[in-house]
């Protein structure tokens, strides 16, 4: 059975790369896209998602604020944040805000699979 995955990133190219990485990994899913946290929350109001992949640095509402609101209002949709550094501060901040995991950018396709698969069950 396919999953519903929401990808939140202000780069359309990066959203495309993530979708292709997941498809290449054999993950069957219907993908929805949002360009920032505000659009991401709107998408969550209109649909049910099994997983969210969100960038951190975005206009209007950044990824940390987004996952914080997701954990408060949509606890059934586990968010993964994409961070550009694995410094303990960045990871801790993401997890404290409600992220269930993180993916360091830049990444290989197999890195996406490693992070996503356990949360899809």
């Amino acid at each position: 059975m396919g999953h519903n995955i929401l990808i939140v990133d202000d780069s359309a190219t990066m959203r495309k790369i993530i979708m292709r990485s997941l498809r290449q990994s054999g993950i069957e899913a219907a993908f929805s896209e949002a360009g920032d946290g505000v659009e991401g929350l709107a998408a969550l109001e209109g649909g049910k998602f099994d997983l969210i992949l969100s960038d951190v640095n975005m206009p209007n509402m950044n990824g940390l604020e987004f996952v914080k609101q997701v954990s408060e209002k949509h606890a059934d949709a586990p968010p993964i944040v994409m961070i550009t550094t694995e410094s303990s501060d960045a990871v801790q901040s993401a997890l404290e805000n409600g992220a269930k995991g993180y993916l360091k950018k830049p990444f290989k396709p197999e890195n996406v699979q490693e992070v996503v698969t356990p949360l899809l069950g």
């Binding site: 359309a12 990066m14 495309k16 550094t85």
Partner: peptide, 17 residues
């Protein structure tokens, strides 16, 4: 264009750290 722009974005993003 999109791909090359993303490369520039990621390189400067890496340097930004």
């Amino acid at each position: 264009s999109d791909g090359f722009g993303e490369v520039v974005n990621m390189v400067l993003g890496g340097f930004k750290q």
